[in-house]
Amino acid sequence: MKKRLPAYLYVLPAVLLFVLFVAYPILWVICESLYGAGASHPGGFVGLNHYWQAFQDPVFWRVLLNMFLWGAITIPVQMVLGGTIAYLIERHTHRSKTFFRVMFFLPVITSVSVVSIVWSQMYAPYYGIIQEYAKLIGLQLSVSPLGEPSLAIYGLILVNIWQWTGFSMLMYVAGLNNIPGELWDAARIDGARGLQLATRVIVPLVSPVTRSLLLLGVIGTLQTFPIVHLMTDGGPDHASEIFGTYIFKQGFVIGDTGYASALSTLVLLIALGLSIMQIVFLGARLTPAGTARR
């Protein structure tokens, strides 16, 4: 025990920080989900009522569907686009490499508020930028995708892809640069070209990056909030509602912290379940270099 004491002391600050900023808030939210709260709600212990309320709430299922669409579209599209851009930059540009990296990464570091306002205006019929170009070919847009219940979520997904593809690109840039030069040479000597080179050499070698992006993508999907809050606020009539906006409305606008906490706990469970599934089925090798860290 004496020998182990320094080791425990070394990890103590990290454990304390984890308990204070992660474990305690999670426990607080779970406890809160078991109580009614707010001026217009009866207080006291309500058990699992909020969870049953969620399962009977049609908006909850709408949110789940939207979250599924968000993840199912954004994650693979960002990976494919980001990977392709990274490959083109790293293998087919020389002097302008840095310029292109910066250009494609720029949306990632742009304020979400700015991105939301600019895209809302781009989508707008009459005065939007897209409309200005559409005019050139004689088209008059009559709707904004953000105002169409059947299109709103896709309009937001497009903005998210535009903003975050640069992040996938950067990750793949790191992954591609970690592939040893001799492997590229060997592949070339063996005659690997085009699709064959991509599917047989590059994709397997950057698979740790892909796994990282998948994990980050799932977590990022569940954490999505500002773009939707600023562009549609989950509307029209919940058509683009996601967990972030729905929890915010329940907790901060309506003031039903009990139900908002139950929804937050469900999000936590979904994130946990998906992360465990990924690690079980895809392994935990997540570093760009592909070095095993199990």
Binding site: A124, V143, A152
Partner: peptide
């Protein structure tokens, strides 16, 4: 109202 009002702020 203008076209696309539901998506406007």
């Amino acid at each position: 109202f203008q076209e696309g009002a539901l998506g406007a702020r």
